[in-house]
Deep mutational scan, measured.
Amino acid sequence: SELMNSSKLIRMLEEDGWRLVRVTGSAHHFKHPKKPGLVTVPHPKKDLPIGTVKSIQKSAGL
């Protein structure tokens, strides 16, 4: 199965306009000026399962 580095996923979010608002432990929480909701990324993780990545991307509207 495909894995993604959390840094790469965070870069994709930031390029889309998401900004880090809070860190709780290894959970990084992002908000967007125009899009609704809060997106949480486990970080640092070298090997996020593709299912997790897809669900984060979906929440972020990517």
Rank of each mutant, 00 (worst) to 15 (best):
S1N: 14
S1H: 13
S1E: 10
E2K: 06
E2W: 07
E2S: 11
E2P: 12
E2R: 04
L3P: 15
M4Y: 09
M4E: 05
M4W: 15
N5R: 06
N5Y: 06
S6K: 02
S6Y: 04
S6L: 03
S6E: 02
S6F: 03
S7T: 14
S7W: 15
S7R: 08
K8I: 14
K8F: 15
L9C: 05
L9H: 01
L9R: 01
L9Q: 02
L9M: 09
L9D: 01
L9T: 02
L9G: 02
I10C: 03
I10K: 02
I10R: 02
R11Y: 11
R11G: 11
R11H: 13
M12S: 07
M12D: 07
L13K: 00
L13M: 06
E14L: 07
E14V: 10
E15H: 09
E15C: 10
E15D: 13
E15N: 11
E15W: 07
E15I: 09
D16M: 05
D16Q: 05
D16P: 00
D16K: 04
D16Y: 05
G17D: 06
G17R: 03
W18V: 00
W18I: 00
W18P: 00
W18L: 00
W18Y: 03
W18T: 00
R19S: 09
R19G: 07
R19W: 13
L20F: 04
L20N: 05
L20H: 04
L20C: 14
V21D: 07
V21W: 10
V21F: 12
V21C: 09
V21S: 07
V21L: 08
R22Q: 11
R22V: 07
R22M: 14
R22G: 11
V23T: 07
V23C: 07
T24G: 12
T24F: 08
T24V: 09
T24R: 08
G25Q: 13
G25M: 12
G25I: 13
S26R: 14
S26T: 12
A27I: 10
A27V: 08
A27Y: 15
H28Y: 07
H28E: 04
H28K: 05
H28L: 05
H28Q: 08
H28R: 07
H29Q: 14
H29R: 10
H29E: 14
H29S: 13
F30L: 05
K31L: 13
K31R: 13
K31D: 12
K31V: 14
K31S: 12
K31W: 08
K31N: 13
H32G: 00
H32A: 00
H32N: 05
H32C: 01
H32W: 00
H32T: 00
P33C: 08
P33D: 11
P33F: 10
P33M: 09
K34H: 13
K34R: 13
K34D: 09
K34L: 11
K34I: 12
K34N: 12
K35H: 03
K35S: 03
K35L: 03
K35P: 00
K35G: 03
P36E: 10
P36K: 11
P36M: 08
P36W: 07
P36F: 08
P36H: 10
G37T: 05
G37Q: 06
G37C: 06
G37A: 06
L38Q: 08
V39L: 06
V39R: 01
V39T: 04
V39C: 04
V39Q: 03
T40D: 05
T40L: 08
T40H: 10
T40V: 12
T40F: 07
V41Y: 01
V41M: 03
V41D: 00
V41P: 00
V41T: 02
P42V: 04
P42D: 06
P42C: 04
H43Q: 02
H43E: 03
H43I: 02
H43L: 02
P44S: 06
P44I: 04
P44Q: 03
P44K: 04
P44T: 04
K45H: 07
K45C: 09
K45D: 07
K46P: 13
K46T: 11
K46Y: 12
K46D: 15
D47W: 15
D47G: 08
L48K: 01
L48Q: 01
P49S: 15
P49F: 05
P49E: 07
I50R: 09
I50E: 15
I50Y: 09
I50T: 10
I50N: 10
I50G: 07
G51R: 13
T52C: 08
T52I: 12
T52N: 04
T52H: 06
V53E: 02
V53R: 03
V53H: 03
V53I: 10
V53A: 04
V53N: 02
V53G: 02
V53Y: 04
K54S: 08
K54M: 07
K54Y: 06
K54H: 09
K54N: 10
K54Q: 12
S55T: 10
I56V: 06
I56A: 02
I56P: 02
Q57K: 12
Q57F: 15
Q57S: 07
Q57V: 15
Q57N: 05
K58M: 10
K58V: 13
K58W: 07
K58G: 06
K58N: 14
S59E: 12
S59M: 14
S59T: 11
A60K: 01
A60Q: 02
A60Y: 01
A60L: 05
G61T: 03
L62A: 03
L62N: 03
L62P: 02
L62H: 03
